[in-house]
Design a protein around this nucleic acid. Structure first.
Lengths: 136, 136
DNA sequence: TACAAGTTTGTAATAATTACATTATACTAT
DNA sequence: ATAGTATAATGTAATTATTACAAACTTGTA
């Protein structure tokens, strides 16, 4: 989703677009590398020195509740956030640690065992080595 | 994998099957509910009061390195462990919090975008509501 | 202008995990 | 059997991520 559209989405839902919230949203929009809370906090703090980490947590929590941001849990010790809520999988390179997005048709996954389950949320992540690191 | 086979696997790899390690392995074999470190520790401590949590962490780390146990990261705050290393997906019920296994053919997932990637590890997890909780 | 609701901050508390030094156990060669 | 070595287990302390909460600040509105 584009930044302008995201802003509108928030306004539609009566969510106040305060300065901090906007900067966090803008950051997520520009840095689609699935940043951690710490990365978001550290980077934005450079321009807004009074930003507090709690605000980052609060804002992300809000955005996740509103389905504008997705949580990614690949590694145990780092929760990452993704503003791309469209259907896609994640690939984490174990060498350079980069997380790549890849297209995936989740509804094409056969899941006979889940006939009577109501499924809200589908996550797929792979691990391995990316082409760049393989070449070295 | 059966418990006896797991033991043999460890011995093949020259991994000392100490009493604690064996108890942890046995626990994972009997409790295929994807327990957290804390659950494992708390339960086994009832029979081995001198067990330390560090030992649980150490043992699990070893087992994961040897590919006898898999790490499951669904929620940000709880790392779970699964002795079932055969290909399967996980479904977490958001109501009762139970994690179900389901069959999945991971190689059937189309992933055109990953042509030049080397993939080691494929994880799939869904969230939603299980039949039992839906019925209520 | 003043109130109420919502936002941000800062500090403290909690919880999971890791680091590390020490002790215990088991294995090997003499 | 015994000394020596490597591995395993323990306990404590440190680190890190996250949450709880109270206080201060903003903003919109009556």
């Amino acid at each position: 989703m584009k930044f302008e559209k995201l802003k509108k989405e928030l306004m539609n839902r009566n969510i106040n677009l305060s300065y901090h919230r906007m900067k966090i949203l803008e950051y997520l929009d520009k840095n689609r590398c699935h940043p951690t809370v710490d990365q978001i906090f550290t980077d934005i703090q450079k321009t807004i020195p009074t930003l507090s980490k709690t605000t980052v947590y609060n804002t992300l929590k809000k955005l996740v509740e509103e389905d504008l941001v997705r949580v990614i849990n690949i590694e145990d010790n780092e929760t990452r956030y993704d503003i791309n809520t469209e259907e896609h999988g994640h690939f984490k390179c174990e060498t350079c640690k980069t997380i790549f997005d890849f297209e995936i048709k989740l509804e094409s996954i056969p899941n006979d065992g889940l006939d009577n389950f109501k499924v809200f949320d589908r996550h797929v992540y792979f691990k391995g080595i990316c082409p760049g690191c393989l070449r070295v």
